[in-house]
Design a protein around this nucleic acid. Sequence first.
DNA 1: CGAACCTGTTATCTTATATGTAACATGTTA
DNA 2: TAACATGTTACATATAAGATAACAGGTTCG
Lengths: 145, 145
Amino acid sequence: MKYSHRLSDAVHILTYIGASEIVEDDLSSRAIAGSINSNPSLVRRLMSSLKNAGLITSEPGRAAVSLSKPTSDITLLDVYKAIEEPDLFHVDEETNQSCPIGANIQSALHKAYDEVQKQAEDEMDKITLSDIVSDVVEGNKKALS
Amino acid sequence: MKYSHRLSDAVHILTYIGASEIVEDDLSSRAIAGSINSNPSLVRRLMSSLKNAGLITSEPGRAAVSLSKPTSDITLLDVYKAIEEPDLFHVDEETNQSCPIGANIQSALHKAYDEVQKQAEDEMDKITLSDIVSDVVEGNKKALS
DNA sequence: CGAACCTGTTATCTTATATGTAACATGTTA
DNA sequence: TAACATGTTACATATAAGATAACAGGTTCG
């Protein structure tokens, strides 16, 4: 996942929905794609994951997506788990088990990566969609003044 | 970089060097590649980055690589910075600047990601090669008993 | 009712990246 | 000098992300 911005686009979608008062109130996948500078199909695919995770509610045929929870109850961690692979780092699972190093490095790395993952997730859990929406609305106010 | 294990292989190399007493004392790229179950060229490429970062010392022609610092002075963060892209998450830099959301989401995301990055890096900075080597040596002892 | 929109899903193409592999110039050792 | 090493480059392959198109089905409103 080096050059991916799936997480960013997913947050963008949620922010668009959560701050729809500052844009024309068009919540179609086409309108959201216009904001991302992407295409409606990508938006609908990401929304599919967000829907599966219980973060948004939508109905076929109607351009009427909405957040399932208040913005303060949706964390960056929720979005991360809905969209991304679970692990930030990957252990090489093909190391040589006949070598003392190769046979024991995997568990040592898993232990280390788990600690990093936990700290990252704890921090992501502290950042809410409300924070992001506030920053965006604030930035927009400044730009208009 | 979804399916990459560059970081794991780099730590593997350093661990191999740092724990060479529990393997036959062959520090050639071929021997290390054997432990990773990979190939010497990959090992030499990773070692090239580790050398640029000042973590190892080596000379052309001689299979005599060594750590530039004690294992307790080499952190997971050092290896991460030597090997990986600097950022865990990437902001979509192509969002529509004509849209209030698209124009302001980038800085909001950078701010959020920076906080997560900082926590992850702080944790990586606490984990040393010494910890990894200890776990591997310990695991080997158990396997032999 | 029917035209015009929408969502949800799938398929294909292109591009970026990681890895495997080979090759080669050059240094070292015995 | 033969054998082996590093350091670097080039190329092939596999995986994944994103762009794009297509289409079945639902919704809205004239």
